[in-house]
């Protein structure tokens, strides 16, 4: 029992020692990149939305088509091997928009194609996006129930 305690304190000591050595990320530079790239992606989407609205689509349809186009662009750039390079620089700026979601579905599809359509693509397609979907849907159900019971 005593040995256990000394081991843990040693680990704690080592962790603190290591943390002092770990270089700090360039927060300001990373945030600026995320802001710029995330902003550009959203501006492109807004631009597409405006064109669609001006060409006579109603708001709901225009929103849907814009999302479809942004997902396509994210998937397309992933296929060309460009999207991961953008993300390496931009971080959350490129991960959070819906094009980043497309990237998280398309990249496993490309990667696991060699394991076949069923055990590869079929089984692994949601290996990255799956948790996001599970908890996204899960929390929307809970919020929906809260809304149903408390706002009526």
């Amino acid at each position: 029992m005593k040995k256990q305690i000394t081991r843990i304190s040693k680990e704690k000591e080592y962790e603190e020692y290591v943390n002092k050595k770990v270089p700090k990320p360039a927060y300001l530079k990373n945030s600026l990149w995320a802001f710029l790239v995330g902003g550009i992606i959203c501006t492109i989407a807004q631009f597409i939305l405006n064109i669609l609205r001006n060409s006579g689509l109603n708001k709901t349809d225009a929103n849907t088509v814009t999302v479809i186009i942004m997902v396509f662009l994210g998937a397309f750039l992933t296929g060309l091997g460009i999207y991961d390079k953008i993300t390496q620089k931009a971080g959350a700026g490129a991960i959070v928009p819906i094009s980043g979601f497309a990237n998280s579905i398309v990249s496993p599809a490309m990667e696991f194609k060699r394991e076949g359509y069923v055990l590869g693509i079929g089984a692994k397609l949601f290996s990255v996006a799956g948790p996001v979907l599970v908890y996204g849907f899960g929390s929307s159900v809970i919020l929906g129930l809260l809304y149903y019971f408390f706002t009526r």
Binding site: V22, N30, T78, Y83, I95, N103, S107, M110, V128
Partner: peptide
């Protein structure tokens, strides 16, 4: 990379360590 981390084309930011 595909065994231990993420698919190759998946966008993520590598840590400095």
């Amino acid at each position: 990379e595909r065994q231990f981390r993420f698919p190759l084309e998946h966008g993520n930011q590598r840590k400095l360590t």
